[in-house]
Design a protein around this nucleic acid. Structure first.
Length: 425
RNA sequence: GGAGAGGUGGCAGAGUGGUCGAAUGCGCUGCACUCGAAAUGCAGUAUAGGUGCAAGCCUAUCGAGGGUUCGAAUCCCUCCCUCUCCGCCA
């Protein structure tokens, strides 16, 4: 949600920002609607004020037993009230239209976000790690998988496309990855472990900017809840409506959860393999912090995600997303892309975004700066640390040998109960 | 799923149609007393919006949304949530 006062004061720079994100100029419309709404608000409030005054006088007249005076005042109030519904309706209509319009507008990009149309305009910030040299043609995970217990056919039989059944040591490796990530983020990076509900209401989805724009991307339950598309939703929304005492240190939350996405609109993309599933697991990082801290926190969070890749010795690169490729609510986003030798491609494995106060406004999440009376909106950040399924894919492709076996990365040995290799059947 | 009770300010808790944004207590802040502290006394202590250069004024908010009324924390309806008992259950 945008700050209406900012748009009112800076309509041109607002439109310029929307233009960068491929949206039409709307500031004029917003300012006009806002003026209309405030005019109606003032009229309504004036009428209410007069009504309240007269009602008070009626009470006094009744108290003194002056029936005639009371009746006269009643008639006066009736007169005052005739114009109220009209202005109330005007206020409601303008407010609703304004909200609807504002709800569909993406966040304003940060100054250092490059302008661009799509992923080709993203900027590589840095690369880490050496791409491993293979003395054979490395396979894609989708080809390695079935012999190792990554059963696409079984998943399809049970549930349909984009579902996969993991059996045996590969299921354990998947679990080990999640445990490893969660332990690392909690023990080394100071995140507090959470276990949130995975079915959430409309408010939580709206507050974290998944509604109204992306309703089709998520699953709806028959009792009108949503399956979380990411645990960012419950983690971030946990501070909705709160006034946090102070945020000298950012509030850092993490959770390992299932995520559900309908993947409407991505038909035909990544249909093969384990990359794009309706159900997947993710270790999510969320930070709630003061506005002046969010930029540093964004860097820190991204490093926390990178640390997992480094510990697993998986080559990756950090991309700064351009205006055209950023998510709706983000003001700045880094994607981490891991190297997949089987596919010969970089694939997104984490996305870390600073949403500024965009979500905080929607969910009314504030804090009170030390010693001050006024509250301020917090800044919220979210990132993957990491997507578990895609990390499994990266391990398979980077740690494979010619005979189809996959070595378990050293960092995971303590989680694997002595298993150091996945053996094909 | 059935039966009942209830949701009031940071907390506890009054208030069942008329100066109620809300008594009182606790907590918190400031001041006084004190060498200092405690105790005590006094004062202050919600959020959001509109309007104004400002002091201020106005409006809304007693779980949420509607309704009745000149006037609603208080009456009516719908929904949400919490608690107790019964049933069922991982």
């Amino acid at each position: 949600m945008h700050d209406i006062a900012f748009i009112r004061a800076n309509p041109e720079s607002f439109d310029a920002a929307m233009h960068k994100r491929g949206a039409e100029p709307v500031a004029d419309r917003i300012v006009a609607l806002d003026a209309k709404k405030r005019e109606a608000t003032t009229k309504v409030q004036q009428a209410q004020s007069r009504r309240n005054e007269a009602s008070k006088a009626i009470g006094q007249a009744m108290g003194q037993g002056d029936k005639d005076k009371a009746e006269a005042l009643k008639a006066e109030v009736a007169e005052i009230k005739t114009s109220m519904p009209e202005w109330e309706e005007a206020e409601r209509a303008a407010g609703e239209e304004l909200d609807r319009l504002l709800a569909t507008l993406p966040n304003i990009p940060a100054d250092d976000v490059p302008e661009g149309a799509d992923e080709d305009d993203n900027i590589e910030v840095h690369q880490w790690g050496e791409k491993r040299e293979f003395r054979f043609e490395p396979k894609e995970h989708a080809d390695l998988g079935p012999a190792l217990g990554m059963e696409f056919e079984t998943g399809a039989k049970l549930s349909g496309a984009r579902f996969t059944f993991l059996r045996g040591d590969i299921a354990r490796l998947h679990r080990a990855l999640a445990q490893f990530m969660l332990d690392r983020q909690t023990r080394e990076n100071g995140y507090t472990e959470c276990n949130p509900p995975l079915l959430v209401n409309d408010d939580a989805m709206y507050g974290t900017d998944k509604l109204p724009k992306f309703a089709a991307d998520s699953f709806r339950t028959i009792d009108d809840r949503w399956l979380v598309p990411t645990s960012e939703v419950p983690l971030s929304y946990s501070v909705a409506g709160e006034i946090l005492p102070d945020l000298a240190e950012p509030m850092r939350l993490t959770a390992h959860t299932l995520c559900f996405r309908s993947e409407a609109g991505s038909a035909g993309r990544d249909t093969r393999g384990f990359i794009r599933q309706h159900q997947f697991e993710k270790v999510e990082l969320v930070s709630i912090c003061r506005p002046e801290d969010s930029e540093a926190e964004h860097e820190r969070m991204t490093k926390c995600a990178e640390g997992v890749l480094e510990a697993l010795n998986l080559p990756y690169r950090r991309m700064l997303l351009c205006t055209g490729d950023m998510g709706f609510g983000a003001r700045k986003t880094y994607d981490l892309e891991v190297w997949l030798p089987g596919q010969g491609a970089w694939r997104e494995i984490s996305s870390c975004s600073n949403t500024g106060d965009f979500q905080a406004r929607r969910m009314n999440a504030r804090y009170r700066p030390e010693g001050e009376k006024k509250t301020q909106f917090v800044h919220t950040l979210n990132g993957s640390g990491l997507a578990v399924g895609r990390t499994l894919v990266a391990v398979m492709e980077n740690y494979q040998s010619e005979d189809g076996r996959v070595e378990v990365p050293e960092a995971l040995h303590s989680y694997m109960g002595g298993v150091t290799k996945l053996e094909p059947r």
